[in-house]
């Protein structure tokens, strides 16, 4: 009886494993920014995303932490290595924005978006990382933030 309880409990916990595991940016969503007063973290999964043709949405917007901006860029660049499609913009040596498409997982498309607004003169001191899964195409998604 006790073993059954433990097994069921572990199975239910495993439902929390996201498909962005395997990507370097997954570490950004491990809960470290939930209490951060410079961060906005969003997690939406399921019914609420139906109208967007998405199944999972995770975003992190971090403000006023330039050291962390570099670390986030490093993680994104690492994931870029395995992207099957991408569109990037650099400002000097730094990654200004990046749109990355990864190999589908369970027939769901996977996307990673990044923008470092602090690289623009007069821009907000913030970096935004968005990870999405679903059935929307890249063009559909780009229309969302145009």
């Amino acid at each position: 009886m006790k073993q059954s309880i433990v097994i069921v409990f572990l199975l239910l916990q495993s439902l929390g494993a996201w498909a962005q595991e395997g990507l370097q940016v997954a570490s950004l969503f491990d809960g470290r920014y939930k209490k951060n007063h410079n961060a906005i973290e969003v997690l939406v999964k399921g019914d609420k995303l139906a109208s967007y043709h998405l199944t999972l949405f995770r975003s992190l917007t971090l403000k006023d932490e330039p050291k962390t901006f570099k670390e986030i860029e490093r993680l994104v660049q690492a994931d870029a290595e395995v992207a099957i499609d991408k569109e990037v913009g650099l400002l000097g040596q730094d990654l200004y924005y990046g749109f990355y498409c990864f190999a589908p997982l369970k027939k769901r498309n996977r996307y990673l978006f990044y923008r470092n607004a602090s690289l623009k003169e007069g821009g907000e001191q913030e970096v935004t990382v968005v990870y999405m899964e679903g059935y929307a195409t890249l063009d559909e998604l780009k229309k969302m933030f145009k």
Partner: peptide, 12 residues
């Protein structure tokens, strides 16, 4: 609950 999540952490 795991299948349908909707939460935001805004500045803590």
């Amino acid at each position: 609950r795991q299948q349908n999540l909707c939460v935001a952490y805004v500045y803590g």
